[in-house]
């Protein structure tokens, strides 16, 4: 019997309406065999945290292209603690300048995937970081 499928939440926090990338990532993850939930646009960090908790996802991916990734991620980090989601893998993608990578990692983001990241690198990262201990 195969191991239970990894469950990934892809979310669009804030007001940013650019969803081409988020939807492309959803398709790539589905193709790779993950179970994917996509929130659609304009979700508050609190709504996203609630979905992550209720759906008991393994991975939370936020897509932000408006430039407001830092305030959004700071807010989400607090909610993550509040909802006991700190053990879930947290990835962020979109229009993320390289100079903000360190700060995002300090906030608690596990993987940062700016524009131009190969789809396979996102799949690989999630696979390697969600592999069951002891294989």
């Amino acid at each position: 019997m195969s191991a239970e499928r990894i469950k990934v939440l892809i979310a669009k926090p804030g007001l940013d309406g650019h969803d081409v990338g988020a939807k492309v990532v959803v398709r790539a993850l589905m193709d790779a065999g993950f179970e994917v939930i996509y929130t659609g646009l304009r979700k508050s960090p609190a709504e996203i945290a609630a979905v992550a908790r209720d759906e008991d996802v393994d991975v939370i991916g936020l897509s932000v292209l408006s430039g407001s990734h830092l305030p959004i991620c700071r807010k989400f980090a607090a909610l993550r603690r509040e909802h006991g989601l700190e053990t879930k893998l947290w990835v962020v993608g979109g229009n993320i300048p390289e100079k903000d990578r360190a700060e995002l990692e300090r906030i608690g983001v596990d993987g940062v995937f700016p524009f131009g990241s190969p789809l396979a690198s996102i799949v690989e990262f999630i696979r390697s970081r969600t592999a069951p201990a002891g294989g």
Binding site: G14, L15, D16, R42, S44, S66, G67, S68, P71, I72
Partner: peptide
């Protein structure tokens, strides 16, 4: 900016961090 485009005032909760940004 996005709050204006989405019909929100600058002091709305969802507008936080977005006022004047794009």
């Amino acid at each position: 900016d996005l709050p204006t485009q989405c019909g929100l005032d600058s002091d709305a909760g969802m507008a936080e961090g977005e006022v004047g940004r794009v």
